[in-house]
Simulated scan of single mutants.
Amino acid sequence: MSRLEEKTVKSQTIYEGNIIRVQLDQVILPDGGTSQREIVKHPGAVAVVAITDEKKLVLVRQFRKPLEKTILEIPAGKLEPGEDPRACAFRELEEETGYQAEEMTPLVSFYTSPGFADEIMHLYVANGLRKGEAQPDQDEFVELVELTLPEAWQRIADGEICDAKTVAAVYYWQLKEIQK
C-alpha cells in the first residue's frame, strides 16, 4: 500500500437506484486509523461540444432538480451498460437537440466529483452538423438554445451556465477561436 492509499476492509451497498448506487466503505487510512467513505457509483456519461456553421454553441435548457433551477448545458447523457462513449455522444446529441454529426472527436475525459463519486465524463467535439428533429427521453424536457461565444460568456456571468462541463466547453471554444 502506498503512503497515500486507503485499504477497503468492508463495502456495503446502502442504496441502488436507476442511475446511481451508493456504497459505504470502511477503510484503513495510511496512518493506520479507520474511517468511512460514502461513494456514489455511476456508469459514466458523455457531453458534446457542438458549434454550428453560424458559430453558435448548441445547448439545452433544462430544469435540474438538485439545483432547483433551470440551467443551460451542452448536450449530455448517461452511458448505457456496455455502450461505447462515442456512440453515446452521437445518440445524446441527436436525442436532445435534433442535430446529427458526421464525426465525434474525443476531447478529454474527466472525473466529475472524485471526492465522492466515480463518474467519468467523456467530452466530445461534434463536427459536420446537420439539423434534425429532437427526440428527448420520455421523462426529459429540454429546449434547444444556440448562443454565440459572447452570449455564452454572458450566460456564465449571469449564472445560467453554471455546470463544469458547459463552462469547460465555452473555455475550449474560446481557446479554439484564439488559436485560429
Rank of each mutant, 00 (worst) to 15 (best):
K41G: 01
L149N: 08
L129Y: 03
S109R: 14
L24T: 04
L72A: 04
Q135A: 10
F63Y: 14
Y15A: 14
L72P: 00
E73D: 00
I20V: 12
T52H: 07
T70A: 11
F90A: 05
A87M: 11
R91Q: 10
H122D: 13
M121N: 15
A47H: 05
V27P: 00
V58T: 03
G82A: 11
T148I: 03
A45H: 04
R86I: 03
S113E: 12
P150L: 04
E140G: 04
A134C: 09
M121F: 12
V49E: 08
L93S: 04
Q62L: 04
V22K: 13
P106V: 02
T97Q: 06
F116L: 10
E5F: 14
P81G: 05
S109Y: 11
D84T: 02
T8I: 15
L107I: 15
V108L: 14
E133C: 11
F63L: 01
Q12G: 01
E5V: 12
K55R: 14
L29C: 09
F90K: 07
R91Y: 00
S109N: 13
A87C: 01
E140M: 12
P43H: 09
I19W: 09
L57N: 06
L149Y: 10
V9S: 10
A76K: 15
K65L: 09
R37P: 11
R21A: 10
D118P: 00
S109F: 09
E140A: 09
G77N: 01
K55C: 00
I74G: 05
T52Y: 07
L93V: 07
G132L: 08
D84Y: 07
S11G: 10
V46C: 09
D139F: 13
I71V: 14
I71Q: 04
G98E: 01
V49S: 03
S113K: 02
I14G: 05
D31N: 15
Y99R: 12
F63Q: 00
G82T: 09
V60F: 01
R86H: 12
M121I: 10
E38N: 12
